[in-house]
Amino acid sequence: MSSFPVSLSELVEYVDFNQQSFLISAASIAFNPTFWNIVARREYRTKFLTKLFGGNRDVACYALAVTIFGLGIFRDFLYERALRDQPSHPALEGENVTYAAYALLAIGNLLVVASTWQLGIQGTFLGDYFGILKDKMITGFPFNITSAPMYHGSTLSFLGTALLYGKPAGILLTLHVLIVYTIAIQFENPFTAGIYAKRERERAKAAGFEEKKEL
Rank of each mutant, 00 (worst) to 15 (best):
T161K: 13
T182M: 10
L163E: 08
N189L: 11
V177T: 07
L175C: 13
L178C: 04
L173M: 12
Y181P: 00
E188P: 06
V177D: 08
A169S: 11
E188F: 05
N189Q: 07
I185A: 13
N189K: 13
E188N: 06
N189C: 01
L163V: 13
Y181V: 03
A169E: 03
L173Q: 08
A162I: 09
L164R: 15
L172C: 12
Q186P: 12
F187Y: 13
F187V: 06
I185G: 08
E188D: 09
E188Q: 10
L172Y: 11
G166Y: 04
K167R: 13
L172V: 15
I185R: 15
H176K: 07
P190W: 03
V180R: 00
Y181K: 07
I179L: 11
Y181L: 11
A184H: 14
L175A: 13
L164A: 14
T161V: 15
L163W: 11
E188K: 05
V180D: 00
I179D: 00
L175Q: 02
F187K: 03
G170E: 08
I179Q: 00
V177M: 13
T174V: 02
L163N: 07
A184Y: 14
T161E: 10
T161Q: 12
T182I: 02
Q186T: 15
A162W: 07
Y181I: 02
T161R: 13
L172P: 07
V177P: 08
F187A: 07
V177Y: 09
P190I: 00
V180T: 04
A184E: 13
A162S: 12
L175S: 12
N189S: 05
T161I: 15
G170S: 11
I185K: 15
P190D: 03
Y165M: 10
L172S: 07
I183H: 09
L173R: 03
I171E: 01
G166R: 01
L172K: 03
A184W: 14
G170W: 05
L163S: 09
P168N: 06
A162D: 06
Y181M: 10
H176F: 14
P168T: 09
P168W: 05
L178E: 10
L175M: 12
P168G: 07
G170I: 05
T182F: 08
T174Y: 04
Q186Y: 15
K167L: 02
L163F: 15
L173I: 05
L175F: 10
Y181N: 07
T174N: 10
I179N: 01
A184S: 15
Y165W: 14
F187P: 04
I185Q: 14
T161H: 08
I185P: 02
T174P: 11
L164M: 13
L164E: 14
H176Y: 14
T161Y: 09
